[in-house]
Write a protein that binds this DNA or RNA. Structure first.
Lengths: 149, 149
DNA sequence: CACCGTATGTCAGGATACTGACATGCGGCA
DNA sequence: TGCCGCATGTCAGTATCCTGACATACGGTG
């Protein structure tokens, strides 16, 4: 393949299309809770990995740590999470959800789960498993940095 | 499913991961040509559908027409595309690539095709076809607006 | 003809994410 | 001990994208 060619046949275009539709649907679902997708993602990761650093959180939500800094500042101002003033060791400031944060996360996670299940409602369990595996493989391959293959 | 649950099992999370990796790889591949992903996407769509309006172009590249306005202004200033001063009919201004635009698109499309083929290098032709179909189906289902399913 | 709904282009403002840069803390190594 | 590499947090500036709003042009309907 020398060039991209017909976009309707491009996997990358389809991925962008699906990701865009997902983001848009998540935005709609989260708007009543006054949460952006990035904010929700941060809460969700923090719920599963309490006490991780902002840099680690950034990597897991696929943004830079500079962007994550702004997100955390906003969420902390709303009392949804807490960060120590000083690092207990090294430079990392372990972040944790407050009770309010956990409560809002519960609502948000429910709304997002609805979006996700609607998204894949036309797929069988096996299709779903394979789709998930293929997506993860694509991401790993790209990040791997194999220049050509 | 009431909540999202383990993120490593979430299709939405995997989709975000893959889309993020793809965008990042495309950014790297396009940087030498001084093109952003949005700019490249616009050129690619314009190459396949010369003369479409900015609003139509925006829909096909998954951004708002306001964002597209800025993209087109920038590309036009670089002489990569042309837009008439007045609409030949209605309000739509049919946009077309210049020779320089087509030339740059050719280079960009080659770079992006390399990224795409690297991304799916671990998948068989049938896997690829199915992945593409599943992604398109997910996007259509989400946009369909079925509230629950 | 007048009115209304829809689509397009555009301007303004704000939110978000990125690159670049700098300081701090830890660990390895001479 | 001193030096270097690396990771983290943070600030500043820039680029990008979004929502909201307004004017314009077309088509349908009374």
């Amino acid at each position: 393949m020398r060039q991209v060619g017909d976009l309707s046949a491009s996997v990358g275009y389809a991925m962008k299309e699906a990701a865009s539709a997902l983001r848009s649907a998540m935005d709609d679902a989260l708007r009543p809770l006054d949460l952006s997708v990035s904010q929700y993602s941060s809460l969700e990761v923090l719920g599963q990995r309490p006490g991780i650093s902002a840099a680690e959180l950034a990597r897991r939500t696929f943004v830079t740590r500079q962007s994550m800094h702004g997100v955390l500042t906003g969420l902390a101002a709303r009392g949804l999470l807490t960060r120590p003033d000083a690092a207990p060791q090294g430079r990392a400031l372990p972040t944790e959800l407050t009770a309010a944060g956990r409560d809002l996360l519960r609502q948000a996670s429910r709304a997002v789960a609805e979006v996700e299940s609607r998204m894949v409602e036309g797929l069988s369990a096996e299709d779903l498993r394979r789709l998930h595996g293929d997506l993860v493989r694509c991401a790993e391959t790209l990040r791997g940095g194999t220049t050509t293959g």
